[in-house]
Design a protein around this nucleic acid. Structure first.
Length: 424
RNA sequence: GGAGAAGUGGCCGAGUUGGCUGAAGGCGCUCGCCUGCUAAGCGAGUGAAGGAGUGAAUGCUCCUUCCGAGGGUUCGAAUCCCUCCUUCUCCGCCA
């Protein structure tokens, strides 16, 4: 959420920034300003009346204590009370309309995010050299099906399309990745957290997934809860409504959870294998930091992501995502795309966003300390390991001619003893 | 799921014949004083949100709201009524 005061005082600055996201992002700006104006107009009147009521009520109390007659004042205040009630209703209507509009306005993009849509994202650099195969490489699903490591048919029978069973040694690989990722991040000061995956609406609104991306979310209507699409949601909500001590910053967490996405609108896209499924597991890092430190923090998180792919020996490229492709809450986002030999291209495996104070304002996450305060923090999130996609990248890049998969050396300490190869 | 109890400021904790309590008292914290050091002691300060006014500015003045959340009763509610949420205890069930 944007600061209404910023919109009020610098409407043109906001308009210009939002225009980069597209016409509809700035569409509600004028209506918003009008609602804000009328809110303050009504507020002034209400407060005057309340002030009057307060002082007269005191007089009434005094008269009653002295056992004098207060009937005429009480009678007068009855009318004022009704007037206040009427104005309060009016005020509340305006305020909820304002709130509703405000919740739909996306974050202001960072100047360093490139203009344009998906195709305008800027490749920052490459790492690693895609392997030359002396044979025809197979894709992850062929490799896995041959050894019954991924079962899409039965997944579909049980749960529908885009659900899978992961089986056998691939399960060990997944948990090796989890251990590797968690330990690496913990050693860098990120506190491991297993998060709730069912969350209240507040957490969804607070992180900016509601109302914009409601159609992507599985909802458990009976309990009014939502399945999270990423542990970013419960991690961000961890400090909801809190004023933390500035000296504890930055607060760094690494979460592990299953993630659930409806993938509405992705029909026909990436239908093969487990590249795009409704349920996958992910290790995610999250940071709350001081507002003047978030650019630095973003760099740190991006470098951690790269370090991990490098240790896994997966060739990748880093991409600065264009404004049109940013989520509502991100001011800036960088993806890492790993090389998939059978697709002959780089595909997204991690993503790292700086949400500035957008989520913090919605969630009311603040700090105070020497700098004074309470002031809003900045929040950042980044993938450490999206297990499904990382497994795909490992399988495809580390496959052997006979169809087994070598385990990257970095993961071997976390595999069953002696297991250096999967599917032999 | 059933039966009870409770939710007040950073923390503990007063506050039920509704009115002068944003909130006693204590702890903690900050600043100052004092003291070889430390401890103790003394003094002052110490919640948040919104709005109006004022200033070049760090600000300052005033008002409103907030005692788990939302409604209601009343001239007036932390105090009375209703709904919801959360926590605790006991029982049942269960990974």
């Amino acid at each position: 959420m944007l600061d209404i005061k910023l919109i009020r005082n610098e409407p043109e600055l906001v308009r210009t920034a939002l225009r980069r996201r597209g016409a509809q992002a700035e569409a509600s700006l004028d209506e918003l300003l009008e609602l804000d104006r009328s809110r303050r107009e009504i507020l002034v009147v209400v407060e005057e009346k309340r002030s009057l009521r307060n002082s007269v009520s005191e007089e009434i109390a005094k008269l009653k204590r002295d056992r004098e007659d207060a009937a005429s004042k009480i009678e007068a205040m009855r009318a004022v009370g009704e007037e206040i009630k009427r104005l309060e209703t009016e005020l509340k209507d305006v305020e909820s309309a304002l709130e509703e509009e405000l919740l739909r306005v996306p974050n202001l993009p960072d100047p360093s995010a490139p203009d344009g849509g998906e195709e305008d994202s800027v490749v920052l650099h490459h790492w690693g050299t895609p392997r030359e195969f002396a044979f025809d490489p197979q894709d992850h699903l062929d490799l896995a099906v041959a050894r019954d490591l991924i079962d899409m048919e039965r997944g579909a029978r049980t749960s529908g399309s885009r659900f899978a069973y992961l089986k056998g040694d691939l399960v060990f690989l997944q948990f090796a990745l989890v251990q590797f990722a968690l330990q690496r991040l913990a050693s860098k000061g990120f506190r491991p957290v297993v998060v709730p995956v069912l969350v209240r609406d507040e957490a969804m609104y607070g992180t900016g997934f509601f109302p914009t991306d409601m159609q992507q979310v599985y909802r458990v209507e009976a309990d009014g809860l939502n399945l999270v699409g990423t542990s970013e949601v419960p991690l961000a909500a961890l400090h909801m409504d809190e004023i933390v001590d500035e000296s504890d910053l930055p607060l760094r967490y690494v979460g592990y959870s299953s993630c659930f996405r409806r993938e509405a609108g992705a029909a026909g896209k990436d239908t093969r294998g487990i590249f795009r499924v409704h349920q996958f597991d992910k290790v995610e890092m999250f940071s709350f930091c001081a507002p003047d430190k978030s650019a630095e923090e973003h760099d740190l998180m991006c470098s951690i992501q790269q370090e991990i792919l490098q240790e896994l020996g997966l060739p990748y490229r880093a991409v600065n995502i264009a404004v049109g492709d940013l989520g509502a809450s991100a001011a800036k986002k960088c993806d890492l795309e790993a090389w998939l030999p059978t697709q002959g291209r780089y595909r997204e495996v991690t993503s790292c966003s700086n949400c500035t104070d957008y989520q913090a304002r919605r969630l009311k996450v603040r700090a105070k300390g020497e700098k004074g305060g309470p002031y809003l923090l900045h929040t950042l999130n980044g993938t450490v390991a999206a297990l499904g996609r990382t497994i795909i990248a490992i399988m495809e890049n580390y496959q052997t001619e006979e169809g087994s998969v070598e385990v990257p050396t970095a993961l071997r300490p976390f595999m069953p003893i002696g297991m250096e190869r999967i599917g032999r």
